[in-house]
Design a binder for these strands. Structure first.
Lengths: 366, 366
DNA sequence: CTGAAAGCGCTTACAG
DNA sequence: CTGAAAGCGCTTACAG
């Protein structure tokens, strides 16, 4: 508001109509392909539109048609970035957002992006304001409580990404269970590790909780010892992961044979901390991640992890939201499959690669 | 439009007003902090707002206040992704977009993101539609001609990123000239290379043109031989870069001592193609990039390149646009400084690093 | 401090 | 096929 306003008068549909010598209704019709305007009318309108560089005002359209053709995406923006590679974290969100955007485009929607600072105060108000500018909202992370979501859902359809299912919204997530199950099976059965730890992610993250739960069940079922608890509490970040390992080491604790990390970021941090102490991965301690972010394969050793269908997560989130805009109810949770990616940090043999970081080529082209 | 509509009736400002027993004007005032509503009025309005989960409609606000508080960002979406690392390319745009978003947030704006397919037909119409939904537009790449920009600029302020300066818009870019100058100086003077080539980026990219021009001037001024021309025409992509090298090698051409690539992506492709033929970088051929994307330091060898202030590019684009929304005119070009980042692909000595990919830590924390 | 009313720029029944 | 008119949900002078 403060001092922001337009300079020159911008042409409206009235200007176009009078220049073309027709009514504004006709202008609207030819512009939106409604009805069957006469060729002559059409021609005159189009000419006037060009002459005036007329662009229909989105707000006015939205108001009268009750459709903004905008989907809002809200996510948390990280604070300080200790590891340079932490930027990769963003990539994860960005790839999801790209998926949302591609799906949105197909339906003629645009994407309104809005990040919320980690320690921003009025999150609810912020999100409400954004919701007012869109036909639907996609929420990354767990930024709103169940009731807050329910309240907002009265006003606009909501899809959560990796959140908790709720009767008021739809949750889209990946299959943490089978991903973790495959990973533990590989570690316990294939490698025979008898002592594992789970380096946890954000304490209140549903993904983290699900992964932790399956980690425990499967490891124990496989007859392995496990280490869990406060000492292993990370926060999905590389610094967090590094701190956990460093603290453990400082207190002289003996490390397990394998560290299963809540995500790739934490794994990067853990590997960094281990390297600093001269502990060899995977010879002394195996480390695994979750997500398969692009850098994962560039690490030394390349990271064994569980690949999430990142872009599909976004595509699906939009499609599910779009469907919800039309119909009242539907499913409340959508689960996408994951894939175990075995590289070397688990202890598997070095697979021969081309002598360059980008050895993993899909096309060829040369 | 097709079949999309709301389910339940959504509360409007009238509902709030009648529930609170005041006029809609009062509701609007307390919600927007205008005037000085009585404490009692304020209380009753707020209570009603909560009770109804009222969220003001953005379209209606925008229409009556003539301010959407939305800035549109349009960029080109790549086609196929041959190199997996090509995703990093997105990161570049995404970091810029993050910068835009952070700056926008400070001013109470949200960001409307819209990518345009490489071979999409109605680009002008698409962009016009997006412009109608925003108070200003930021254009990545060179997607619109000079006249198209001028036409659109009649309707909405425009900032281009790495485009051409024009009287109708403002262009924000980095200082290609001094970056390339520093790089060539390092290659020619410090390393003494006498034979260089410029692996070009998109033929119509202003950045590429500027870099190519300075490359020539500086290399020649330094007394070096240069190779340029169609055989060295890439397209900013890794595949493009790889193809150029492969084609040259296939035709038995002798490579120069150093290949200066238009950007990091092309450099990655070039290094890949060289590695496939067993040509050693930097011992036989030095390779450099431009941009300093995050993977650059993970390559083997780590890439010498010119760092662009990526996030600042975005921040600046928004601020400049915001300023333009208020005042009629101003500067037409903003240039941000760059920094030469010397790593190993130029032939410089291996700098001792921690035994892990993420050796580059900023904080510490352990 | 507060309310009645106009107006923002479109879309869309409703007549003709 | 086309136009006059109502209405979408807000903000903001203008009176009081």
């Amino acid at each position: 508001m403060a001092g922001v306003r337009r300079a020159k008068a911008i042409p409206t549909i009235y200007d176009v109509a009078s220049r073309a010598g027709v009514s504004i209704a006709s202008v609207s019709r030819v512009l939106n392909g409604q009805g069957s305007p006469k060729a002559e009318t059409r021609k005159r309108v189009l000419r006037a539109v060009r002459a005036l560089s007329f662009v229909p005002d989105g707000a006015a359209r939205a108001l009268s048609s009750n459709l903004k053709e905008v989907v809002a995406v809200v996510f948390r923006r990280g604070g300080e970035v200790a590891f340079e590679d932490e930027e990769e974290n963003l990539l994860f969100m960005d790839v999801i957002n790209r998926g949302i955007e591609v799906a949105a485009q197909r339906r003629g929607f645009d994407v309104l992006i809005s990040s919320v600072g980690v320690q921003e105060e009025n999150v609810v108000a912020r999100i409400a304001a954004i919701a007012g500018k869109a036909d639907g909202v996609i929420l990354h992370d767990q930024m709103l409580s169940k009731i807050e979501i329910a309240r907002l859902a009265d006003v606009v359809p909501i899809v959560t990404l990796a959140g908790n299912p709720s009767s008021a919204s739809i949750n889209v997530r990946c299959d943490n269970g089978s991903g973790m199950r495959a990973l533990i099976h590989h570690l316990v059965t294939d490698h025979g590790y008898r002592n594992l730890a789970y380096l946890s992610g954000g304490a209140d993250s549903p993904d983290n909780l699900a992964r932790a739960r399956v980690f425990e069940t499967e490891a124990v079922a496989g007859g392995a010892q496990i280490q869990v608890g406060p000492a292993w509490q990370g926060d999905y970040s590389a610094v967090g992961g590094a701190n956990v390992i460093a603290a453990l080491l400082n207190r002289g604790r003996e490390l397990p044979r394998a560290i299963v990390c809540a995500n790739d970021q934490a794994a990067m941090g853990a590997m960094y901390a281990l390297a600093r102490r001269g502990i060899k991965v995977p010879e002394e301690v195996a480390v695994t991640g979750f997500d398969d972010v692009p850098v994962a394969r560039h690490l030394h050793p390349p990271l064994t992890t569980v690949r999430q269908p990142i872009k599909e997560l976004g595509l699906t989130a939009f499609e599910v939201l779009y469907a919800r805009m039309g119909t009242a109810r539907g499913q409340h949770e959508v689960v996408l499959p994951v894939q175990l990616i075995i590289r070397e940090s688990c202890g598997c043999a070095h697979s021969p690669a081309l002598p360059q970081a980008s050895a993993s080529v899909a096309g060829g082209g040369t």
